[in-house]
């Protein structure tokens, strides 16, 4: 699995909710999980092979979300 630390849990949750909606449902059930624990986002799967195929696009997406956060401000407090 891949673990990404964030400055706060709020940012980790924003990243989770931005990245989650488009994850493709694969035949034979869910093969990858994206979860947040504290301020850490983790991306995991039962088999490394499954992560390997999609690691490029996952990292592209993650870095775009991080850049967006950096440029467009600290999250507003709820």
């Amino acid at each position: 699995s891949l673990e990404v630390p964030f400055p706060s849990s709020r940012e980790a949750v924003i990243a989770l909710r931005s990245l989650s909606p488009d994850r493709e449902p694969r035949k034979g059930g869910i093969s990858k999980q994206l979860t947040v624990s504290g301020s850490t986002l983790s991306w995991s799967a039962d088999e490394a092979r499954i992560l390997r195929v999609s690691v490029n696009s996952f990292l592209d997406h993650l870095s775009l979300v991080l850049e967006t956060m950096e440029m467009f401000g600290s999250p507003v407090s709820q």
Binding site: P21, V65, F72, S74, P75, V76, Q78
Partner: peptide
Amino acid sequence: ALVARTVAQLWG
């Protein structure tokens, strides 16, 4: 969509 979702959350 990724950027739209992220700014929507950042800006509430």
